[in-house]
């Protein structure tokens, strides 16, 4: 559906007089760094992240169904298309950019590559963050728990098996 304000980076039209009223300052932790920023009251977290240059968080359906925009907020996964930027004031946010670097991949990222868990890659950032949130809470989950943890992340390419295998591999290597 071609809805202008659903496009990434697009903003709702704001009346000139209202402009200052709609801005607010937020302070939060982003990938372990302190950030202070001015945000529009009605901007979505996913758009705000994109505006900050963090494009690893993917925008899929924009309706909270696909999980491509998954981030971790205070240890819990969230669809960043359903979170308003002002809501992260005072919170701790982890995006895919906070997981690993090109030089040093996160063990989950290594395992995804080794197990062939990535095809088109659009769901991958969300999958990785859902997996990280699970492992942060439970370092030794069962296969069923792994599968449940990624059930909010849709993947059209892989059939999920290799993704679950990759997460299981990290679990096994730790235990």
């Amino acid at each position: 559906m071609d809805v202008p304000w659903k496009k990434p980076g697009a903003k709702l039209p704001v009346l000139e007089g209202d402009k200052n009223m709609s801005k607010q300052t937020i302070n939060f932790m982003l990938n372990s760094q302190k950030v202070s920023a001015q945000v529009e009251s009605d901007s979505r977290l996913v758009d705000f992240l994109h505006e900050m240059g963090l494009t690893g968080t993917k925008l899929g359906c924009g309706e909270g169904d696909c999980g491509a925009c998954t981030v971790i907020i205070d240890g819990q996964t969230a669809n960043s298309c359903l979170v308003l930027a002002p809501q992260i004031d005072g919170k701790e946010v982890t995006t895919i950019e906070g997981l690993g670097s090109y030089e040093q991949l996160h063990p989950l990222q290594e395992a995804f590559i080794e197990e062939g868990a990535v095809q088109c890659g659009f769901c991958t950032p969300g999958m990785l963050l859902s997996a990280k949130a699970l492992l942060d809470e439970n370092s030794n989950p069962k296969r069923e728990e792994i599968i449940r943890s990624i059930s909010g992340n849709l993947c059209r390419c892989t059939g999920y098996t290799k993704i679950a295998n990759a997460i299981e591999k990290v679990v096994r290597s730790k235990s």
């Binding site: 095809q119 059209r156 892989t158 059939g159 999920y160 098996t161 290799k162």
Partner: peptide, 8 residues
């Protein structure tokens, strides 16, 4: 991967 994804 193609077989698993396609079957799904």
């Amino acid at each position: 991967g193609q077989i698993e994804g396609g079957s799904t």
